[in-house]
Design a binder for these strands. Sequence first.
DNA 1: TATATAAAAGATAAAATACTCTTAAAGATT
DNA 2: AATCTTTAAGAGTATTTTATCTTTTATATA
Lengths: 150, 150
Amino acid sequence: MLLSKSCEYGLRASLYLASISSDKYISIKKLSEKLDISFHFLTKILQELTAAGLLESMKGPKGGVRLSKASHKISLQEVVVAIDGIEIFTECVLGLPGCGSEKPCPMHSMWAETRDDIEEVFRTTTLKDMSKKGKQNDLRITPDGKFIWQ
Amino acid sequence: MLLSKSCEYGLRASLYLASISSDKYISIKKLSEKLDISFHFLTKILQELTAAGLLESMKGPKGGVRLSKASHKISLQEVVVAIDGIEIFTECVLGLPGCGSEKPCPMHSMWAETRDDIEEVFRTTTLKDMSKKGKQNDLRITPDGKFIWQ
DNA sequence: TATATAAAAGATAAAATACTCTTAAAGATT
DNA sequence: AATCTTTAAGAGTATTTTATCTTTTATATA
């Protein structure tokens, strides 16, 4: 599994927020119900995204979370790095610490290339790209597919 | 992390066996010492590779494990699949079950392409390719880099 | 000001993964 | 026969990940 569960949930929530394209705050309760993710768990994940500056939050009635900037200015890579860290885009496929061009493993050159391709795809794809695609083609972002884009 | 620790260890041991290029059996004890991996843990992992038909084993004195076929006939993909399963080359980046071209998620087409590239690299690279590279350039397959190719 | 709402924060629990250790059995070598 | 080494199964521990629960803090609105 490339991404952790936390990261998968974070991405799905971000895609939903991007599809709203409003500056209203959406409560985490609502998000968790729409996406069928545990409320408390999602809260933790979204706190990380808020701490990373990708989301803004507001307490109290009518509070919730929203994207901190336009969805076309947030890449999937930013979301992934905020939750899983930069490691997945930098680490050795054999798990050797400090593997790099100075002291590489046999698989380094082969893997670094592939890994950079993955990073590029995540870096050049925005939340808007994906939410637009999902909305236009009614694609699913929940296991049961019952999610309805607005 | 793309690969599990077990898989990283299995790959490293396979690379070492490939570098020996002999039909002698190598004891798991020796392998675990050379590669600095827990003997008991490595035993379990190599049993999986034996069960998958990638290694042959022999009990008793002078026993151990060896590759079941020439190292240029074993791909990295086979080793990975034997330990981590085929899922890493097939699963959805958002973790949605059954994600495919019939009922995709927004990231499906983007990810499927990248994922297939990863699979291709692992499928077209053999243990011989990597062990040869490691041996010729004295690259490391242990964290401390003290491993010596023979 | 009082109240309800909702995120933040922290503590705890459950599950999965990564290891370690032990025991017994069987095959191979000397 | 004695010894070496894998096979196999299982128990036990540690760490990380995933998930839940409770309390605190901030905010809107009546």
